[in-house]
Design a protein around this nucleic acid. Sequence first.
RNA 1: GGGCGCGUGGCCUAGUCAGGAUAUGGCACUUGCCUCCUAAGCAAGCGGUCAAGGGUUCGAAUCCCUUCGCGCCCGCCA
Length: 578
Amino acid sequence: MTARDPFTAFRSEVEDALRTALKNRGAEGTTIVLERPPEGMGDLAFPCFPLAKTLRKAPNAISEDIASVLEPSGMIEKVDAKGGYVNFHVRLDRLAGDTLEKALSLKERYGSGEPRDEKVLLEHTSVNPTGPIHIGRARNPIIGDTLARIMRLAGYDVTTEFYVNDVGRQVATMTWGVKNLEVETADPTQKDDHRFVAYYRGANERADADPKVLAEIDDLLYKLEHGDAETVRLNRETSELVLKGMLDSLRHINIDVDQFTWESKLVEDGSVDKVISKLKESQYCHEEEGASYLELESFGISGRETKWVFTRSDGTSLYTTRDLAYHLDKFSRSDVAINILGEDQKLGMQQLAAALAIIGSDRKPETVFYAFVSLPEGRMSTRKGTVVTLDDLIEEAEERAYHEVKKRRTDLSEERMREIARVVGMGALRYNIARIQAEKQIVFKWEEALNFEGSSAPFVQYAHARACSILRKAGRTATASSAASAATKLTTYHEQQLLKLVAMLPSVVEQCAEGRRAHPLASYAQELASQFNQFYRYVPVLKAEGETLEARLALVESAKWALGNALNCLGLEAPEEM
RNA sequence: GGGCGCGUGGCCUAGUCAGGAUAUGGCACUUGCCUCCUAAGCAAGCGGUCAAGGGUUCGAAUCCCUUCGCGCCCGCCA
């Protein structure tokens, strides 16, 4: 471990000290687990309970014994024993010096980790271009984009990619609608993703009622896969328009996708055919009425059906078959392939993993699965029209945020207020999705999604704005070179608590990146903002003098970077005023 | 029927992977705090058999088993 993270450096020293002490007591090789002790009992704690058996001594006696032999050194200021724990207190001036120096010199890079060699390809969103993104689906880009940002700061080389499903039945259905239906409600001024969904819905209704229509859609699907120029053109044209509408929505919540792979490309360039012939060579491959399938029972797949069909009777490919080709393509372009997928795709991914093994690939994608967002009335359905679209949500969020700004500020221009409302509204929305662990279901409620206080984006943004306000009034910024001397002046409780949290940003970022989890960063941001607000309330900065003033300015600026960088990783903007 | 996931105060949620000190925050509710760097804030109070029951352990929200509830899946859909 490098000393890039001051708190990690402290942790390493504690571990080293403990290792030596344990070795001398005949408990060599004990796994050292350190935890965060309760308030006021130090900064790292080592529980001695597991040692009681091997050392044949009471935990209390062990902790006191260990504490008595460990001398303060380096970043360890004090070691004491309490109730079977050895508690380590960090040397505040060292921690402060290192932290302030890092934050003030790295600025928007504070929190970053060592650059890594792995090239990461992170696929997210990848929804069918058949209609606007709704909030159930919006969880995907939000988790994906947040994770991408976190991993980038952590030092990975990350490229995000959107896989455009322009080949399957859904898209063929929509294309049939565009070709055959006159949709009266289609308002030409609407965004294309909203406009075209009417054709999709209409085509579905007709197909449900009339088998002839269904057959025509099948025919379109066949033509699509066999390169019928007119069908391919119309399909692509429609898909592109709808996709463009969706990307506009994403841009409103600060998401830009780096790259796109069109599913149709994999069909056209023959990679899907190649995969199919490889699969057919396998001993697990069987045929039934012209359709090919793999028998996957021996691959840990269970349920009523362990067959995995990869070609239809007419020889056309299926979604997962094409996805298999896509994964091989992704593997050729990256070291780590990460997917963000809804939990409904779990079986599909298992089948895909089995198929990958069968065709001899030694690679596997990593997948982050998330549970669906539903409404209090139940599941959202595009067909039933019971959806709240991302666009609705963005509009409502900004409107409510505007109302809040107007309530509080009378000194700002209309334009400025609108800008703040945009940043706050969009932020509230993203934060409320990002803060919850992916596998937990969310029931969407407006009052929660657009919460502007407590555990919310505006709370964190507000702390950032306050920090900026102090620095603005001070009329200068702190310098990294003064960090060490400043560090000795941070003597109050609130200063030290704030500092410790600022010091933890790099390890929080690293842990999120390693675990492919976004939500712990949201918790951290909330905790940091809360600590900053307490500092703000109890520790006057601009009224301080001399070195104390300098030290506090350095702390405020460091906190500003930590808050700003955490916000940035969450895809939220960090306003300088609110 | 089978598989996977979730279940923490009235509501939302952290902690669960690597078991440890009085279970984390927020919303709502009650009550204080703007002559003081933005009150989108701070402080105090109220509120929990960590779904239920067994087990392992000195110790379980965390590990194991059973049950219940909710979600998702078991398509020649994507």
